[in-house]
Design a binder for these strands. Structure first.
Length: 495
RNA sequence: GGCCCGUUCGUCUAGCGGUUUAGGACAUCGCCCUCUCAAGGCGGAGAUCGCCGGUUCGAAUCCGGCACGGGCUACCA
């Protein structure tokens, strides 16, 4: 039975040797979306066979990142499943059994070559400028009984797969690259079991994928060249070969492999910077996959229903933070004022220790107004902090932006504008944005000045800066008492 | 050294032999709106489809070579 006829089972199998990187996150997203779009099963497996670099803490970081991304897995850590365990370190006996079966069936053999001999052989091949520089097959034709005797005698050994002499072309059916042809002659009898009794990656991963019934392997294209080796293992195991989908790497702005010097590379850094999970998934999903040539903002639901492997691009993608910001802004702007207040505004203010000061005008209606004012001006959650800061300063401590003072307060007419507006505002009972604007509206004409000449001095007086939401909203948020106090204070700087 | 992969505006991409004067999005520039900053609306500039040959009446699309970039070739994953 061909793999495409089996119910879809895909897996994301990170090694807990570090945090979840954006490249891994995208691989996880594609696996998840493919499973959801095909009604298949999404499995999470932890490939922790490298004991020196794998840690429990990294495993937790990865699970947390997966949850934050909203990539729920059907089988794996913490949810279980019929094909477990889902940690490779708990499956060692499976690998051992599979390898021994391969030896027994003549598809693998014991090798007693020392690392030194192998290195010497390789150097010799290089010196001879041989086209083939792999394993020379020294132990391939050892008598099985004799080999077994040496093993029993305690001699160190590795287990190597026996690539059939007459295998010919190995064709990897890849959903994004098409059929990729390799010749088995270029493959050597690679090691599947180390002398320390642990399996190698190319072996363990295939044993797991075969036993877990994985039908499609979606992973980074750094594995493409290793795929024919893995196909050899599937064949030796007598397991169906899955369909592969090798996706390209994500690069930094300079076209080089993403690394620390490019800034944020891990999922949690993006989360901590204030990106929305939906926006981040949206951006990453479209970095290398396009449902059409038009869509930029695509919902999680659409991703989960429309994702397909045949629209995945072959070439590497450069990560563009500007576009991520744009998409994040789109998600923010699509929120209701209430959602924005509860999910972004208030948490951000709290995490920056901007707690309500003075009298309690910071009620629900006040936050709704602040949310409405700030939402269109926000592309990243933390943007709200600097914009709202003037509302959390004592009147006497408010700092004025030097340029703004020079441009708007230290100018002829500024004092008149402040006087007139203070007078109009003092008389005002209804302290709503609309009422404030109505009260201020006639002033420019009365004073014979342009609107900017009147409103900007007020804005600078109240916020300390030349940029803020509309004057009505700004004053309404600051509160009448504070507005008047700040205007009075600013008059000392005005002409 | 050998094998494999990739190459469309600055960036992400659409394009699967004629409907293409190569479409969209981000970024950028300009205009409108406007009390500022955003948001929003409208518009501009921006890609001889890596290069060279070939197939074809016709190629970004098919084939070959080359160049550049990347991967694998480990008792790493």
């Amino acid at each position: 039975m061909s793999s495409t006829e089996r119910p879809v089972r895909v897996r994301f199998a990170p090694s807990p040797t570090g945090k979840l990187h954006v490249g891994g996150a995208r691989t996880a997203i594609y696996n998840w979306a493919f499973a959801r779009a095909t009604g298949g099963t999404f499995i999470l497996r932890i490939d922790d066979t490298d004991p020196t670099r794998s840690t429990e803490e990294n495993t937790q970081v990865i699970l947390r990142a997966m949850r934050w991304l909203g990539l729920d897995w059907d089988e794996g850590p913490e949810v279980g499943g019929d094909f477990g365990p889902y940690f490779q370190t708990e499956r060692l006996s499976n690998y051992r059994a599979a390898a021994e079966r391969m030896v027994a069936e003549g598809n693998a053999y014991y090798c007693f070559c020392s690392p030194e001999k192998l290195a010497a052989d390789r150097e010799a091949a290089q010196a001879r400028k041989d086209t083939f520089q792999g394993y020379q097959g020294t132990c391939r034709h050892l008598d099985p009984a004799e080999a077994q005797a040496r093993v029993d005698a305690g001699e160190p050994y590795t287990i190597r797969i026996k690539v059939p002499d007459d295998r010919g072309d190995v064709i990897v059916h890849d959903a994004v690259h098409g059929d990729v042809v390799f010749n088995a002659k270029e493959l050597d009898d690679f090691i599947i079991f180390r002398s320390d009794g642990t399996p190698t990656y190319n072996f363990a991963t295939v044993v797991d994928d075969a036993e877990m019934g994985i039908t499609h392997i979606i992973r980074g294209d750094d594995h493409l060249s290793n795929t024919p080796r893995q196909v050899m293992v599937y064949e030796a195991l007598g397991a169906p070969v899955p369909t592969f989908a090798h996706i390209s790497m994500i690069l930094g702005a300079d076209g080089k492999k993403l690394s620390k010097r490019h800034g944020a590379t891990s999922v949690e850094e993006y989360r901590d910077a204030g990106y929305l999970s939906d926006a981040f998934v949206n951006y990453l999903a479209l970095l290398g996959w396009a449902p059409d040539g038009e869509s930029t903002v695509i919902s999680r639901e659409r991703l989960a229903s429309e994702f397909s492997l045949d629209h995945v691009s072959k070439n590497p993608a450069i990560m563009d933070p500007k576009k991520l910001d744009f998409i994040n802004g789109e998600y923010l702007h699509a929120m209701s004022d209430r959602e924005f207040a509860d999910e972004v505004l208030i948490p951000e203010l709290h995490s920056h220790d901007l707690e309500p000061v003075g009298e309690c005008l910071h009620d629900e209606a006040w936050y709704d107004l602040l949310a409405a004012a700030l939402k269109p001006r926000t592309t990243l959650g933390p943007d709200v902090v600097a914009q709202a800061a003037f509302l959390y300063e004592d009147d006497a401590d408010l700092e004025y932006d030097e340029k703004a003072v020079k441009k708007w307060l230290a100018k002829a007419g500024a004092a008149d504008a402040l006087d007139a507006s203070a007078k109009a505002l003092t008389a005002l009972d209804d302290w709503s944005p609309a009422a404030i604007e109505a009260a201020l509206d006639p002033l420019p004409e009365q004073l014979g000045m342009g609107k900017g000449k009147v409103f900007q001095p007020i804005r600078v007086a109240v916020t300390g800066s030349a940029a803020s939401p509309g004057i009505g909203e700004t004053l309404a948020l600051a509160g009448k008492e504070h507005v008047l106090a700040r205007i009075a204070r600013a008059k000392e700087l005005a002409q």
